[in-house]
């Protein structure tokens, strides 16, 4: 741990620190600033998938270490913003982010790959209501009720319902009697399912995976609104990542479906694989961002 200075000039010294980084690898939990030592690969995760399955994450990390031939650490935080900030600061090498923060910071981030769900790199944002609510047909029927957002930096869990309201000329800040964040899509489903919120905004992919897994939570909810197809949350890399690292990581993801271990892991995620993605995939989200930002 020779260098714990995380000022900007540490970036220029990165190459020199490779040897020191090997020492850091021995410690099971490393301070984040050690990321600048470049040996270990730090990957940020957000609740764009079911990120609370610890045993799955361990298997996936092992898989990454084998493919990247490096030690790998997953980094999880309570909300999107912290992960986004860490990537922007260069403290994480890669992150699985929502399309919304990618669109906002696309100049600072590099798009690595997008997941393939049901064969395509798209997903939908859902608006759900409690199962015993038989009347609500759209988000606009939830006026004056309690609404659960997932995360203020989530496309499906925040941006999409905001966009709908703005489009309809509503003031998103006054439309609901009360709204709150659950900081996770699964928890939105839970909050709606138990009736804490009358409705909620949730990642359609997460809702469907929970539903396929036979979860009690989705059974207590009903989807009343689906967004158009939007770009599935992508893997991104920090802007100053070396091409070699970028390529190695990207190859690993793209080849995941074609090796048996990787396919098993993808099966757990209910994904078909990762695919090459262009920033244009997220133009739909970008349009919503610009609409919401300038109502």
């Amino acid at each position: 741990m020779a260098d714990i200075d995380d000022s900007h000039d540490s970036f220029t010294r990165r190459r020199w620190m490779l040897a020191a980084g090997a020492l850091a690898a021995a410690a099971p939990i490393r301070p984040l600033r050690a990321a600048v030592q470049r040996e270990r690969v730090f990957i940020g995760l957000t609740p764009v998938f079911l990120d609370d399955q610890v045993s799955f994450l361990e298997r996936w990390r092992d898989w990454f270490e084998k493919r990247l031939e490096r030690p790998v650490s997953f980094v999880q935080r309570g909300n999107y913003r912290e992960i986004v900030d860490l990537v922007r600061q260069g403290k994480l090498d890669f992150a699985w982010l929502c399309g919304y923060p990618f669109v906002r910071y696309r100049r600072e981030l590099r798009l690595v790959a997008a997941p393939l769900w049901r064969g395509r790199p798209y997903y939908q944002a859902y608006v759900i209501v409690t199962g015993d609510d038989r009347d609500s047909r759209s988000l606009f029927d939830l006026r004056g009720k309690v609404f659960a957002y997932s995360d203020p930096d989530s496309n499906s869990g925040y941006l999409y319902p905001q966009y709908l309201l703005v489009q309809a000329g509503e003031n998103p800040g006054a439309f609901f009697s009360r709204s709150f964040y659950t900081w996770g899509h699964r928890k939105v489903v839970e909050a709606v399912s138990v009736g804490l919120a009358a409705g909620g905004a949730v990642d359609g992919y997460i809702w469907e995976v929970l539903n396929d897994n036979g979860s009690e939570l989705t059974r207590g909810t009903r989807v009343i609104s689906r967004s158009p197809l939007l770009g599935h949350p992508p893997f991104v890399a920090r802007g100053d990542i070396s091409q070699a690292e970028f390529d190695r990581f990207r190859r690993a993801l793209m080849g995941m479906a074609s090796d048996s271990e990787g396919a098993t892991l993808l099966g757990s995620l209910r994904l078909d694989g990762f695919t090459d993605a262009q920033p244009a995939l997220y133009d739909g989200i970008a349009r919503m961002v610009s609409r919401v930002a300038r109502p």
């Binding site: 309690v146 009697s177 009360r178 138990v194 009736g195 804490l196 919120a197």
Partner: peptide, 12 residues
């Protein structure tokens, strides 16, 4: 503010 039985004691 919040209750353990939100259906009977909703927010607000």
């Amino acid at each position: 503010y919040v209750s353990s039985r939100p259906r009977e004691f909703p927010v607000g």
